[in-house]
Write a protein that binds this DNA or RNA. Structure first.
Lengths: 244, 244
DNA sequence: TCAAAGCAAGTGTGATCACAAATCATAATC
DNA sequence: GATTATGATTTGTGATCACACTTGCTTTGA
């Protein structure tokens, strides 16, 4: 019986070949819409149609409608009584609500991560910040999309270390919900060419490197709050002007 | 111009007729599956097929597959690489993970609710507890389904008062995820005819009535923890026996 | 002139079909 | 006799169609 030999051969093959993985069209549509939502490519109150999205992505309506359904249950999109779907509008209450939830849950995640991140993980997030600094140095072209992506990588690299399979999807849902709102803030920060963002992130890394969970939580809260308070004041002034 | 008269007539009609509301088949399927999941009618690791569920609910596959997709994004169900879907299996890590998240988020919700619940809301949850006591008095037939429903009503009546449109869907997702696990605990408690559950709930109501957010949070944490610690020990002993 | 009725285009929902992949049982081969 | 190959059945996925509802515009009537 050559059982052992065959097994060994299979292992050798497996070592050579990368798993190809089967991604359905629906998954791609879903990922793409997620990316667009977190990146703030859709505006609040914008309505989306199944056929419109299907045409834009060059597929049929079937994968799109299923992806939309999933995003609606995540509160990333909103189903109107007319059965049309839109990205949820911003209100002051919703903004405060989202911020509170994010500080609560992402704060818990980073506190857990502080005790679990080794030099390996710290190095990874420092690399991300390094790339960011590089990009900022070349200030001639400001790529806000890339900035959003780097910010996302930085945060989720930390959250992944918290070791909770329950908290992470919730954080993703929160980012999905706040994405359309905060893009304008990030864009404004980038426009102003400000370097405060880097300072906030450095404080987070310092706290994590010294395994100081409390400091990490506070630094993160400060980092998260910034775009929200910015947008809050902007919304308030707009509302007061609208009232006059 | 009879405009005013017509308007008045329409109002009279509106007063007589209740809004009929349009609920899609997909919504009904989704609600039904949610109910089954929270109630623990499905077992962990049980696989579900689209056509099987469609036959059971006497519809076509279309609403079912969309409902399943939504439940998968909520982590209430799990998509295997084989593309079949099952109820997530229980592990010790997952149990602890769920408990921690529930104490964190539901604790925050009840702390917020403590400051917002008036006599009206307090009366409502007391009524629910009263019904529960009544049911327990007639101990000849123990209806664990009804017990689960009352428990759910009690908790969510509180959470609804927290005023956060962001936290509540997250709590629903957490209940969806822990439903299949904790039913066996609730059943065991009901079987034992224990009255401790009522004590825990009374402590919660007391804390809420006196607007003591801290006490409410602690009482809730104790209430939530009970079935989890029960199930945890049960799982551990089963694992150790399985190991031998 | 203006409001209400009517028509037409667009949209979401559910059913059905076609196809590919997985699973299971049976048969063939060493 | 155990293992691999083969075939049938089941299952998820995507496309297409039919239907009902919404929406916006045009037309009609007062």
């Amino acid at each position: 019986m050559q059982k052992a030999a065959i097994e060994k051969n299979n292992e050798a093959i497996a070592a050579q070949l990368a798993p190809v993985g089967r991604e359905t069209v629906q998954d791609r549509v879903y990922s793409e819409l997620r990316r667009a939502l977190i990146g703030g490519l859709f505006e609040p109150s914008q309505v989306l149609t199944i056929r419109g999205l299907a045409d834009a992505m060059v597929t049929s309506t079937m994968p799109v409608r299923e992806a939309l359904g999933r995003l609606i249950t995540e509160k990333a999109l909103e189903a109107l009584p007319n059965r049309s779907v839109r990205v949820p509008p911003i209100t002051l209450e919703r903004l405060d609500d989202l911020l509170r939830a994010r500080i609560l849950i992402e704060g818990e995640a980073i506190a857990l991560a502080a005790a679990r991140m080794g030099p390996r993980q710290i190095a990874t997030i420092e690399t991300i910040l390094g790339e960011w600094d590089e990009m900022r140095a070349l200030k001639h072209k400001k790529d806000v999309d890339r900035e959003v992506t780097l910010n996302q990588s930085f945060h989720f690299e930390i959250y992944r270390s918290c070791g909770s399979a329950v908290l992470i999807p919730m954080i993703e849902s929160l980012w999905l919900q706040s994405g359309p709102c905060i893009r304008v803030a990030i864009y404004a920060f980038s426009e102003a060419g400000e370097v405060d963002t880097a300072q906030y992130h450095r404080r987070i890394v310092e706290a994590l490197a010294t395994q100081n969970a409390r400091a990490a939580r506070e630094a993160l809260a400060a980092d998260i709050s910034r775009p929200f308070t910015f947008l809050r004041s902007k919304l308030q002034s707009a509302a007061s002007k609208g009232q006059i």
